[in-house]
Design a binder for these strands. Sequence first.
DNA 1: TGAAATGTTGGGGCG
DNA 2: ACGCCCCAACATTTC
Length: 475
Amino acid sequence: MPAEPVIVWFRQDLRLTDNPALNWACSLDRPLLPVFIWSPEEETPWAPGGAARWWLYRSLGQLVDALAEKGLPLILRQGPAGRELDALIGKTGAAAVSWNRRYEPAIIKRDAAIKSALLDRGLEVRSFNGSLLFSPPEIASKSGGPFKVFTPFWKHCLSLSAREPERTATLGVPAGKKPASLPLADLGLLPEIRWDRKFEDHWQPGEAGARRALRRFLDHALRNYGAGRNRPDQDNTSRLSPHLHWGEISPAQVRSAVVSAGEGRGAETFLSEIGWREFAHHLLFHFPDTPEEPLRPEFGAFPWKPNARALQSWQRGTTGYPIVDAGMRQLWETGWMHNRVRMIVASFLVKHLLQPWQEGAAWFWDTLLDADLASNTLGWQWSAGCGADAAPYFRVFNPILQGKKFDPDGVYVRRWVPELGKLGTVWIHEPWAASTTELTSAGLRLGETYPAPIVDHQAGRKRALAAYQGLKKQS
DNA sequence: TGAAATGTTGGGGCG
DNA sequence: ACGCCCCAACATTTC
């Protein structure tokens, strides 16, 4: 075995199974030098937000332990990735570097520069797709351009062969020269005010936790996924999103497990959700400005009404619409929100409140454990009606009807908005419509113990439609 | 992966 | 028995 090690640069692939970069490194029969570099300044303005950093902290801890079990230390560094890699190569004489690709615009650019610099130095360098079923550069429509509609995109993908999970390699030996490594705590990932403690109760970051989440989903929720996924009061979704974002499990592993579970329609519907994740990355790859700018340029002239109070009331979950407030509080407390409710709160922010979708995206970015640039961008542009295959702008969710339809017993609302706990199911999604007697017996004083609606639904809907009409006339 | 307004139909109450 | 009206229930269109 040659003495010069191979650097395995971990990024958003914090797993040891189905890890192409790791497998390739092992195939070189060189000592292994696993590395993680924390370089948020290179991801500006989309460096991981507060919640995501908590996840990263915990997930790195798991990866450190998992590697240690195999006798391998994980080197933790901080700073510009290229500089840190150079330093590591200088220190250890590493002859090769491998990593799994990320497809965010800023990262693509950075990694391309690093790769060519390393090649110039005569190192062997390989990057792999480990995070998507279909690599964005390889997917194109008949006309050669990117897809802008989900259904043809996904149909096209399904006609190709998806990435399959790789066999797990036997890990090599550690590098002889051990470069300096920072203690995990020194990366500054945890917030100073420890608002994150509540996350512990809801999540198990790391590869083992990802596998557990998948197992639970396959055993209990996949069969009824088609309808069950829409019920925020029930536990019918996979909750895999943060695990997938950090690469603790790969979509190939998920897909392969779902296919062998073979639960018919439920499986098909779930796989199309994985498809939306692929579609989001496809769009971000081809339209790198979309985290900031609407894909449909006419929306640049949309008459948003930025208002700090309205935004804050949405963020804090005090809009007076129970399903909206429940969602925003679930997000704050658990770092996650049910997808049905994400659509409801997003529609409410951009349509009823006319706040720019970018504000919603920024809040989600900071508070979601699964914050992912591609998915977050797609979701918000979809909600605002300005993206690819988006909900038409006139599609305004009625938060009362959505509540009644998808939280019929008010269980979700009562869980996250405890002040409504004693209110009967009839009025749980529209407390303002209840009589004073009913409110009193539920211990409620509207405007005091629970807010009155920040905007009337009908008025908000009409105002949103008028804004859209104006935009249509203009263009 | 909407909701509301508008249009249509058909059963039943009633003179 | 018949026509008229009301209005659910459903379908279609519009936003």
